[in-house]
């Protein structure tokens, strides 16, 4: 265990996350090569000056609650995210906390889809619930497997347990499942159906102005946080030769993010009515088997 982070880290965290989200969104736009080149900064400014917009008989507080919840959940989940070996607050049940915050996205997307009283946004919200049912269980099993490897729910302990061998090496299935669910929970990439273009933006279809900025940047934040969390869980956190811990964390996070952004371009959007079956029939038993292997290793340690 390391000493707690100073209080100014609380101020730095949202700024760092926002910067990372902006960088990833820009990287994605660059790869997009023109077609949908909406540069994040410019896009945010464009939305910022928009007139507020209300659909008929919309539930405005509900919509706003939903869109606000998304970045809040992302940033609060990042509390347990260590930069090097220090996180803003290394909660004793950090992994459960992360899981709880990430599950808030279910409510966030559903409320945002429900609020505007619009068919397409309702379909978007509904799709995310089906997506949640598909990704969440293998995801939880994957993160418990990492916790099992360290026999602790504290993220700091999980990182310490990987001083020698990274968890990704001896629990590859859990790592792969985690990456899939990181995409799914931030409904980004091949799992972007809840906000898909075929439903005119889905849950975000009727959002304009600040609500849209908050919701979409919340999605990027959640994506960055979820991807970054794979580093302490499976990729050894700040462990690595030569470079200081924080540099290793940043480097590994950047590699994971770049990989996910690149991989997105190779595959179409996955529809839940097909993925649910895969998730329950293949991924869940696979995650359980992985957990069993890890449990046996832990017993014989």
């Amino acid at each position: 265990m390391t000493d707690p982070a100073p209080l100014w880290a609380v101020l730095a965290l949202p700024a760092v996350l926002a910067g990372a989200a902006w960088a990833v969104a820009s990287f994605d736009a660059v790869l997009g090569a023109g077609a949908r080149a909406a540069w994040p900064g410019r896009e945010a400014l464009r939305l910022l000056v928009q007139q507020p917009r209300r659909t008929r008989a919309a539930d405005v507080p509900l919509t706003r609650l939903g869109s606000t919840l998304l970045p809040v959940a992302a940033v609060l989940a990042a509390v347990v995210l260590p930069l090097g070996f220090r996180s803003v607050s290394d909660l004793p049940e950090g992994i459960v906390w992360f899981n709880a915050m990430e599950a808030l996205a279910w409510a966030a997307v559903w409320l945002t889809g429900w609020g505007p009283n619009s068919t397409l946004s309702l379909i978007g919200g509904y799709r995310f619930l089906a997506q949640g049912l598909a990704y969440e269980l293998p995801h939880m099993l994957a993160i418990t497997t990492a916790a099992l490897g360290a026999e602790s729910l504290r993220v700091g302990d999980v990182v310490d347990a990987q001083a020698g061998l990274w968890f990704a090496v001896w629990m590859p299935a859990a790592f792969g499942i985690y990456l899939l669910s990181a995409l799914a929970m931030s409904f980004w990439g091949p799992f972007d159906q809840p906000a898909g273009r075929d439903v005119a933006g889905g849950a975000a279809a009727e959002l304009s102005g600040v609500d849209r900025i908050v919701f979409l940047s919340g999605r990027w934040l959640l994506f960055v946080v979820a991807a970054a969390f794979s580093v302490p869980l499976f990729l050894g956190g700040g462990h690595g030769p030569l470079l200081p811990g924080w540099a290793w964390t940043l480097l590994k996070t950047a590699v994971v993010l770049a990989f996910l952004v690149w991989a997105r371009r190779r595959i179409p959007t996955v529809r839940m009515e097909r993925y649910v079956e895969l998730a329950w029939v293949v991924l869940t038993p696979l995650a359980v088997a992985q957990a069993l292997v890890v449990a046996v290793v832990v017993l014989n340690r």
Partner: peptide, 16 residues
């Protein structure tokens, strides 16, 4: 539009 880099909106909410 591709040449100019103007984004295509999927609906009126995000359009100018």
């Amino acid at each position: 539009l591709v040449r100019r880099g103007w984004p295509c909106a999927a609906g009126p909410a995000s359009a100018n």
